[in-house]
Simulated scan of single mutants.
Amino acid sequence: MRRLESGIELSATAAADHLLSSSIEPHEHTVAWASTDGSVAFGGSDEGPGLVDWLTVIGPGASELLLYALAELPSRPEGISVPRGTDLGGIRLGEYEQWDQMVRGSEVGTLALVPGEERVVAMTTSPAGDGEIIELLTRANPTHSVHPGDAGIEVWARVRDSAGVLVGCGAYCRRIGGAGWLGSVATLPSARGQSIGVAVSAWLTRRSLAARDQLCALHHWHPNHPARRIYRRLGYTTTHRMMSGKWPGEGKNASGTSGHGIG
């Protein structure tokens, strides 16, 4: 096992891993380790060099690398994300949550227009518009991954009903390294059943295709078979099956993939 010295070295070490490439910026400060079997542990913090707010470990040797990385850190991270089924070696977590990453690679090609996509348009940034999005997300998707003003968001998609009420939204975000990702896709509960989520996701994916992203990624809670069916219909495939948890007594859990939360 070895310590990696930069985000650039981390990206080069595991360039083919879709969770890694869609979670970090190559030039940002990152603390990371790699093992000879291809497993990688990584995280970072705004609090200072060498610190990790959330530790993510991927690969077949995740159990051993997790314990190694935790022993090397000067302080314990807020929580961890590891592949589901990883032996935690006696580590006890508080309530943990399970989630999947899905990815649509550039090789998948064109995307057929889906019913209702003509209702989706870009939402102009404004205090009033941002307020509408926040209100919708609070009601429809409390665990949303991004909200107005977050770094990396390129555009918000929105759908309104005949009365002008915002009933659906979602964000297209992009990493400096070339990965696009979808966040905070939500439909107002009273408007569900109209395939609004499918239409918004297709519209956002089309933005990724137009930007010629290397890949477009998203996260969804597991189990969530309806979401999986939607995204598979749009050409996404599951690449990682993960679980995340905080230490006991440290509050409600959240996905910790470098600020890259659940859609």
Score class of each variant (00 low, 15 high):
residue 140 A to Y: 09
residue 89 G to V: 02
residue 197 G to V: 01
residue 190 S to T: 13
residue 10 L to E: 06
residue 215 L to F: 13
residue 97 E to Q: 12
residue 211 A to I: 07
residue 167 V to P: 13
residue 162 S to V: 10
residue 109 G to H: 02
residue 145 S to R: 02
residue 191 A to T: 07
residue 56 T to L: 01
residue 82 V to C: 05
residue 172 Y to I: 04
residue 249 G to R: 03
residue 25 E to C: 12
residue 207 R to A: 14
residue 171 A to R: 09
residue 105 G to I: 00
residue 14 A to M: 10
residue 193 G to E: 11
residue 180 G to F: 12
residue 154 E to W: 14
residue 155 V to P: 07
residue 150 D to V: 10
residue 192 R to M: 09
residue 218 L to W: 03
residue 53 D to G: 14
residue 131 G to Q: 11
residue 194 Q to D: 15
residue 121 V to D: 06
residue 67 L to D: 04
residue 197 G to W: 00
residue 224 N to G: 09
residue 104 R to Y: 10
residue 150 D to P: 13
residue 44 G to C: 06
residue 138 T to D: 15
residue 17 D to H: 13
residue 100 D to P: 05
residue 223 P to T: 02
residue 122 A to F: 05
residue 244 S to Q: 00
residue 127 P to D: 13
residue 12 A to I: 01
residue 15 A to H: 08
residue 166 L to K: 01
residue 217 A to V: 14
residue 48 G to Y: 02
residue 157 A to P: 01
residue 240 H to Q: 15
residue 36 T to C: 09
residue 38 G to V: 06
residue 20 L to P: 14
residue 18 H to M: 12
residue 219 H to K: 03
residue 62 A to K: 05
residue 176 I to S: 10
residue 183 G to F: 06
residue 6 S to N: 00
residue 228 R to L: 04
residue 138 T to V: 10
residue 213 D to V: 07
residue 51 L to E: 15
residue 53 D to M: 05
residue 107 E to C: 06
residue 205 T to P: 08
residue 246 K to G: 08
residue 173 C to Q: 13
residue 150 D to L: 09
residue 102 M to K: 01
residue 32 A to V: 00
residue 239 T to R: 13
residue 53 D to C: 05
residue 129 G to Y: 11
residue 5 E to G: 07
residue 255 S to L: 14
residue 220 H to T: 08
residue 196 I to N: 03
residue 114 V to L: 02
residue 164 G to A: 05
residue 133 I to C: 06
residue 162 S to T: 12
residue 85 G to P: 11
residue 195 S to A: 07
residue 258 S to F: 04
residue 58 I to K: 01
residue 242 M to K: 08
residue 9 E to W: 03
residue 133 I to L: 14
residue 224 N to W: 05
residue 131 G to T: 07
residue 35 S to P: 06
residue 104 R to T: 12
residue 114 V to Q: 05
residue 138 T to A: 15
residue 124 T to C: 03
residue 142 P to M: 05
residue 177 G to M: 00
residue 229 R to C: 10
residue 106 S to L: 04
residue 169 C to Q: 05
residue 79 G to Y: 00
residue 227 A to K: 00
residue 31 V to Y: 03
residue 159 V to S: 04
residue 252 K to G: 15
residue 206 R to E: 04
residue 6 S to A: 09
residue 15 A to Q: 06
residue 222 H to D: 08
residue 124 T to M: 07
residue 51 L to H: 14
residue 127 P to S: 09
residue 136 L to R: 06
residue 9 E to N: 02
residue 118 E to S: 15
residue 259 G to M: 03
residue 28 E to Q: 15
residue 194 Q to F: 07
residue 225 H to D: 11
residue 42 F to R: 01
residue 60 P to I: 08
residue 199 A to D: 00
residue 33 W to P: 00
residue 139 R to E: 13
residue 113 L to P: 13
residue 85 G to H: 11
residue 52 V to E: 13
residue 237 T to Q: 07
residue 24 I to R: 02
residue 99 W to H: 08
residue 260 H to Y: 08
residue 237 T to R: 10
residue 21 S to T: 10
residue 5 E to N: 13
residue 201 S to D: 02
residue 38 G to D: 08
